[in-house]
């Protein structure tokens, strides 16, 4: 069953570059769609600026979209107001990238973790202590830390506290926006194990946003690859990693440094020298396929026609190489 359905979600920002200049329109998220199943992990991967964090913010309603809909259990979340919105916030929580910026330095761990309980009136006040202790145990911390302040903790411990805060309201879906990228290697694995354990034990679903392909391959069930605000390829994670179709996905996967020589792809390292258009930005989005300027396999229609997402054997690909011939031809 689908827990969350995203349909044609859009968001643009207008950047004003000067007092008298016309602002330029930046399409941060350009009509993306995906579903997240119950107790499943959907991952969005892509490089900085591809719009993946904007999607995360829209799903928790920190940012309002310009178009499209998000259905949570069949209800459009952008139509929610007051009480229904409050209920939605209980069901969907977010973990941010930087645990140094996302905890209030003036609030003790106890007040940070009990605040949601108070606002949502989940348990009576006398049970706060017990509930907070429970949460801390769930994320692998001892209950005696609750009177301490964020600065007394390391990055990994802070991220555990952020996860505990997200769990306070027993959500069904957790949006994790680069939850590992500010942590050291040895700590990343601890946090990843914790997220996997929570998925198994309390049946959480995740929207997992990351630029680390190893982590995504390890953790997610379905993966969407984003480039300049669009999903260019989407499918079951295993499939997608063993047989990437879109040239951008292929480029991403072959760019990851591998420890084991047998996993190193004898790239087609064409792209390594193809630096010409690296700097192409949202503002100067090419007509046609957004990846066209960097694509090693571009051909005639790529610069003119925007490829649509085509579905074949459980895989969605937006690339002219895999276009289904139209009925007339």
């Amino acid at each position: 069953m689908e827990l969350l359905k995203v349909n044609g979600l859009r968001k643009h920002y207008t950047s004003s570059s000067g007092l008298f200049k016309q602002g330029t329109r930046v399409q941060a998220v350009d009509g993306i769609s995906f579903n997240i199943g119950v107790n499943k992990v959907f991952a969005l991967v892509g490089e900085s600026g591809c719009g993946k964090s904007t999607v995360a913010r829209m799903l928790v309603r920190l940012t309002e979209p310009d178009g499209g809909e998000v259905l949570f259990k069949g209800v459009d979340i952008f139509s929610l107001r007051a009480e229904t919105l409050k209920a939605y916030r209980r069901s969907v929580q977010i973990i941010f990238q930087d645990p140094f910026a996302s905890l209030n330095p003036r609030m003790s761990i106890f007040s940070t973790l009990s605040e949601p309980l108070r606002i949502h009136g989940i348990v009576p006040k006398r049970q706060y202590k017990e509930k907070v202790a429970d949460l801390l145990h769930t994320v692998g911390l001892t209950s005696d830390v609750m009177n301490r302040y964020p600065h007394e903790f390391s990055g990994g411990q802070r991220q555990r506290i952020c996860i505990a805060r997200a769990l306070t309201l027993s959500p069904e879906l957790v949006v994790a926006d680069e939850p590992l990228s500010s942590l050291d290697v040895s700590i990343q694995a601890q946090i990843l194990n914790l997220l996997a354990e929570l998925k198994q034990k309390i049946g959480l679903s995740y929207l997992f946003i990351s630029h680390d392909l190893h982590v995504v391959q390890y953790f997610s069930d379905q993966t969407g690859v984003m480039y300049m605000g669009r999903i260019v390829e989407q499918g079951a994670t295993d499939e997608l990693f063993t047989r990437p179709l879109h040239p951008y996905t292929q480029m991403l996967i072959s760019s990851v440094p591998q420890i084991n020589p047998i996993y190193r792809t004898p790239v087609d390292r064409v792209h390594l020298n193809n630096v010409l258009e690296e700097a192409s930005s949202h503002a100067a989005l090419p007509s046609g396929c957004c990846f066209y300027p960097r694509c090693p396999r571009r051909f005639e229609p790529c610069g003119k026609i925007v490829p649509t997402l085509n579905h074949q054997n459980g895989r969605w690909t937006a690339c002219h190489l895999y276009a289904v011939p139209s009925p007339q031809t």
């Binding site: 390391s154 990994g156 411990q157 050291d184 290697v185 040895s186 700590i187 990343q188 694995a189 601890q190 990843l192 194990n193 190893h214 982590v215 391959q217 390890y218 953790f219 994670t237 295993d238 420890i259 084991n260």
Partner: peptide, 22 residues
Amino acid sequence: RGLINSLPRGRGIALNPIPGFV
């Protein structure tokens, strides 16, 4: 060895992180 085992190597292969922190 702990550093190497902390890296995800593919689905289903358990991660063995180093406990504690730096």
